[in-house]
Design a protein around this nucleic acid. Structure first.
Length: 687
RNA sequence: GGCGAUGUAGCUCAGUCGGUUAGAGCAACGGCUUCAUAAGCCGUGGGUCGUUGGUUCGAGUCCAAUCAUCGCUACCA
């Protein structure tokens, strides 16, 4: 079994955004596992690539006025820089936009055809005549055909929950150009996954390839019903690979993305004189995918189905991890908790995040939380106070003499540490890094206690104890080195530094089993700097996206300052301009100033607040607004707002809503009610 | 509301097959030490294992119900 090779992949980052600390959970988790396997002497190859295709890339490139290839090249360079900065050490980092990937897609496609899994049928889709492109569901808005709610996306209604195709929308509008889309029929290609149902049932439920929670989830959500056909083609124009036997059609990005794993391996093979078959079509190679829980479906149903059909090896295991929360909440740009990799690197040592994640990660797919207080405490206490301190408090004593010629008696400490190695290795192998780090810290505690009891600083002052001093330091530095060996997968830099200090590089896990003796040592230099809490603060500040607070908005409107803030164009890109409307269209909408006379909690609702607004006199309305997370009841009580007064009342779960309160912002805590300058009174119309 | 999970010390978590008095780290408190980056060592306090019921000689662990929290989703007119 030991000659088995490992091929490891992490999910392919999409070329539409930068790497942030949430992504890094996965890359660090995977990198630790790979480094561990290599340190144990396993043949292990770690490949990844940028995921480059799809409508989003095409649109973005257009907005930036440059070719897609330029956009994806820039983004890939940024991704690789970020990964390097965090010591994520891919053996090869490719791109899904490669000739290898195209060739593999062709081959796999042919196999799917031969197996009779591909069906073709027409799909009515909306086409934007101005932008000259078919519109993905998210690029179309219109009125729900079921409940007549306006401003709904193309696939389902967020109001009544109806699902439909974009072509059924009433008065559809392209969010790209604002043009009225036309319905065009296009031929789409589907993979009939249901034909593989039995195989997928067996594979996912075998208990060997997936975490039990995942197998359970698939069984309850997908495998209990017939599997739906998968639409894997998109009509031109589309940024991707054209399907060879279906001119004008391109593979959907999710078809060619996982094939990118194989393509990247192939590129690695070419560069290293290896054969792809040995890695993807051989029982002597175990394939391990590491992914987040959001893309479980693709990797556990569609992907095994494709591999099986095309004659490639199936993954030995798909390791699925949870998400990162920061301070107990989802990452957010406005609070600065969605820290980008390059921002982190400006302020903090990547080793710290690697260690912190390791100390929190288990094999389950629970989310992990980054609490900054805990982060600072843990890193400073464990890495600096315990581990680095071992070298720091002994190395200088024996800079002149070096290590003892023979390893002295240490009361069995080194042997106990060596014996712990198998338990630590097992924890790493099972992805239980929190256990591994806990076990390692026990060793550090014992080593520090040994320093305390041996009191080298006292020995130093006694000229008759110089040999003993050298022995004690030899022991402590070897315990330190043993710990560094065990931490090598997590902290490769510390491992190298330790190798330099003792002039004995750490190259194998078994370096933990034998002490280094009779050896000069290098001059001691600090290995790690403690985290100053101010650095965290600075990092968060830099990560905050400028979002004007409601409080700041009012004075700036009343008293314009001489310095205008620089506003990014992100909001407009996020939600493109609606098509031109006439003044008649506008006057159909009756906007009125209203006063919130009562704001009530709706206990069962997560987002809704029940408002009673007055338009003056006896004229009051009940309005439900999705602003619970952004405002307290006290803040709402009494204030003036602008409402859409002639909106058709809507029956909601908690009552009838007779209007809409206007607000800007993406939602959640970022909702900003429109206010009016003083002087306006309820009932006045907005012109 | 649907689906998935999770509730163990102030915080983050471990707790194997049901078995003695439920553990660790961090934080807190007291003492010691001064080699070390305000690091280290020893000690102390702190838990009705969410709640209720059940199975059992015995339940943190198994079963049922219930409550709470988190994620996705629905409800943002």
């Amino acid at each position: 079994m030991n000659d088995r090779k490992l091929l490891v992949t992490a999910a392919l980052p999409y070329a539409n955004g930068h790497i942030h600390i949430g992504h890094l959970v996965e890359y660090i988790q995977t990198d630790i596992w790979v480094r561990f396997q290599k340190l144990r002497g396993k043949k292990c190859v770690f490949v990844c690539a940028d995921d480059t295709h799809g409508t989003a890339i095409m649109i973005r490139a257009r907005q930036e006025g440059r070719p897609e290839t330029e956009l994806i090249a820039d983004m890939q360079a940024a991704h690789e820089r970020d990964f390097k900065g965090f010591d994520v050490s891919f053996d090869h980092y490719g791109s899904t936009n490669s000739s290898e990937n195209r060739e593999l897609c062709n081959g796999i496609w042919a196999e799917l055809r031969t197996a009779g899994l591909i069906a073709e049928r027409d799909v009515e889709q909306l086409f934007d005549p101005v932008a000259g492109t078919f519109l993905a569901d998210r690029f179309v808005k219109g009125t729900c055909p079921n409940c007549k709610s306006p401003d709904q996306y193309g696939d389902n209604c967020s109001k009544c929950g109806a699902t439909y195709s974009p072509s059924e929308l009433i008065d559809p509008v392209s969010t790209l150009s604002g043009a009225k889309p036309v319905t065009k029929s296009a031929s789409h290609l589907f993979v009939e996954l249901e034909q593989l149902h039995e195989f997928l049932d067996t594979w996912t439920q075998s208990g060997k390839h997936l975490q039990p929670e995942v197998a359970n989830y698939l069984k309850g959500h997908f495998l209990c019903d017939p599997l739906r056909d998968w639409d894997v083609s998109r009509p031109s124009p589309y940024f991707g690979f054209e399907i060879p036997d279906s001119v004008g059609n391109f593979w959907y990005v999710w078809f060619d993305a996982p094939i990118g794993y194989i393509a990247s391996t192939w590129q690695w093979c070419k560069a290293n004189g290896e054969k792809l078959e040995d890695w993807w079509k051989s029982s002597s190679t175990e394939i391990h995918h590491f992914i987040g829980k959001d893309i479980a479906y693709f990797h556990t149903l569609f992907w095994p189905g494709v591999l099986k059909t095309a004659g490639y090896s199936l993954p030995e295991f798909v390791h699925i991890h949870g998400f990162l929360t920061v301070e107990g909440e989802k990452m957010s740009k406005s609070t600065g908790t969605q820290v980008q990799a390059h921002t982190y690197l400006k302020h903090l040592d990547p080793s710290f995040l690697r260690y912190f994640y390791a100390s929190k990660l288990g094999a389950k797919l629970d989310d992990i939380d980054l609490n900054f207080t805990e982060f600072v405490n843990k890193v400073n206490s464990d890495l600096v106070g315990k581990v680095a301190n071992l070298a720091s408090r002994t190395a200088r004593f024996i800079e002149a003499t070096g290590l003892s010629v023979e390893y002295p008696h240490d009361g069995g400490l080194f042997a106990a540490g060596a014996a712990a190695g198998e338990r630590i290795a097992q924890a790493y192998d099972q992805l239980d890094y929190s256990r591994a780090t806990r076990l390692i810290m026990e060793l550090a505690d014992q080593a520090n206690a040994y320093v305390e009891n041996s009191a080298p600083w006292a020995l130093k002052k006694d000229p008759t104890q110089q040999v003993r001093l050298q022995e004690v330091c030899t022991i402590v530095l070897n315990l330190f080195r043993q710990i560094c060996v065990y931490l090598t997968p997590v902290l490769p830099k510390l491992s190298v530094q330790c190798g330099q200090l003792l002039q004995a590089p750490i190259t194998h896990w078994d370096d933990s089993q034998t002490p280094v003796v009779n050896q000069a040592i290098s001059k001691f230099e600090h290995l790690l700097q403690r985290i100053a809490p101010e650095k965290i603060q600075a990092m968060i500040e830099e990560s905050k996206e400028v979002v004007p607070s409601p409080a700041a908005e009012v004075p700036s409107a009343a008293a314009p300052t001489s310095e205008l803030p620089i506003d990014s164009g992100d909001a407009l890109i996020q939600e493109p301009m609606a098509p031109t409307c006439t003044i008649d269209d506008f006057t159909k909408v009756d906007l009125r100033v209203a006063r919130i006379i009562k704001a009530e909690e709706v206990p069962e609702a997560k987002k809704l607040v029940k408002l009673t607004v007055s338009l003056g006199g006896d004229n009051t309305r009940t309005v439900f607004a999705g602003i619970k997370a952004a405002y307290t009841l006290e803040q709402l009580q009494g204030r003036l707002v602008v409402i859409v007064a002639n909106l058709q009342p809507r029956q909601m779960k908690f009552g009838l809503s007779e209007g809409m309160v206007t607000a800007a912002g993406p939602g959640g805590t970022e909702v900003f009610l429109l206010g009016v300058d003083s002087g306006a009174v309820p009932g006045q119309r907005v012109h």
